[in-house]
Design a protein around this nucleic acid. Sequence first.
DNA 1: GTTATCATGTTGTCTATACCAATTATAAAA
DNA 2: TTTTATAATTGGTATAGACAACATGATAAC
Lengths: 244, 244
Amino acid sequence: MRKIIKNSPVPLYYQLKEILQEMIDNEELKPNEPIPTERELCEIHGISRMTAREAIMALVNEGVLYREQGRGTFVAGPKPKYRLTELRGMTEDMERMGHRVETEILSFATAQATKTIRSLFGLEQDDALVYRIERLRIVDGEPYALETVWLDAERLKGMSRERLEGRSLYDVLRRDYSLQPRSARQTFEPVIMSDYEASLLRVDPGSLALLFHQTTYGESEEVIEYVKSIYRVDRYKFEIFLKS
Amino acid sequence: MRKIIKNSPVPLYYQLKEILQEMIDNEELKPNEPIPTERELCEIHGISRMTAREAIMALVNEGVLYREQGRGTFVAGPKPKYRLTELRGMTEDMERMGHRVETEILSFATAQATKTIRSLFGLEQDDALVYRIERLRIVDGEPYALETVWLDAERLKGMSRERLEGRSLYDVLRRDYSLQPRSARQTFEPVIMSDYEASLLRVDPGSLALLFHQTTYGESEEVIEYVKSIYRVDRYKFEIFLKS
DNA sequence: GTTATCATGTTGTCTATACCAATTATAAAA
DNA sequence: TTTTATAATTGGTATAGACAACATGATAAC
């Protein structure tokens, strides 16, 4: 390992950060292998632990390293290359385009709402309950999105896994609860899939994906649902039409 | 300001982080205004400076705060959201939302159209010419997107770098060439930035980004422009509004 | 009036130390 | 051999203090 230069104008933590990055690039440190411990790095370079930590934490923040308390600090897996794909339509068009769409309910739970979810639904009680439903969307037998839906349990009493089985959520909301989705606000961003998500969607861990956050509003602008969805992007392309 | 609870199992730095985030959300601390200095926060909560720093640095990493050595720590503005439902130039869109938009023309070239571009514009001659313009879009002083625009040189005779300088492209098309953009088809996908793109957009190489391909149509459905844009996603969020 | 210097306040870097929490290796006991 | 308790190792949190680098306003010198 290259050594830190003590009297350099370059901060010590920054030098160490560069050294570690270099070793990862040169594969002296390989993915999922541990890097030297904080205390070892202190020894090697003659620096204090807080300084070593600063270098490590910077790389953790960049996703280059990950840490596990009691075990060590490890090199994160490499980021995949992007592959260009065929042009395809989007979710709603799927059935219209003659594709077979299935939904597998992975979990159905009643849980205490987090602060974020509470403020979203305008729930005041600290112990307000929500349904948290995880669903796997499947098109023509291939999984293509992983969805987590939050619903206000107070408003939607009697919701159950069985009630959702084989029906669309919107159908249940409309017919069983007289809730008509009117508008939605959706944000999206690129993400790297976690191992869990990748295995469910049957793609390589670390694949690129699109993460959507959707808040759906009803007729009186009340929040009906909050949805977090991860879409794979290797088989489908997302398309928007804009008009002036 | 709420106080830190010393004997809580929640780490002190994390409590302080939450307190600051809360004050920003409640607008007790407003964008571009300074937050209490590190030493003030130490005084107020009876913690050490490194602990206060840790809370602050976490928020800096998330883009909630920014620091200037010798001056202080300030609340970052809210993430601008780029809305995709209406067809406007990005410049007009951002300006309407109160952001300062600049555009740096990186290159302006007349080139022979590739086969793909020819078929897109409906050009028949093998030696048809197109303009190829590379632009760096800058919002509030921060580079935001890298755009490559292709235009039909035959239809837009006399287009030049100078003509574009300081004006929006759509403005030039409307006023100088009587071309009114009417609709557009846009696809998007996540990508990993190349080193070149990353350096221009001033982010770390290998950062996640969104790649857009846009074909813009005029009043008689003719293709006006073809645009490939790479957007950074660390400072801005993309948003879509859906209506039933 | 203009410029240079200084004092002060801010963040940036770094040290040395201490104890806590989680995990893993080791030794003792069953 | 298996289980259990203990020790060692690792990262997580926190302290108190020091000096550097930079920004700003007040003051002194020109």
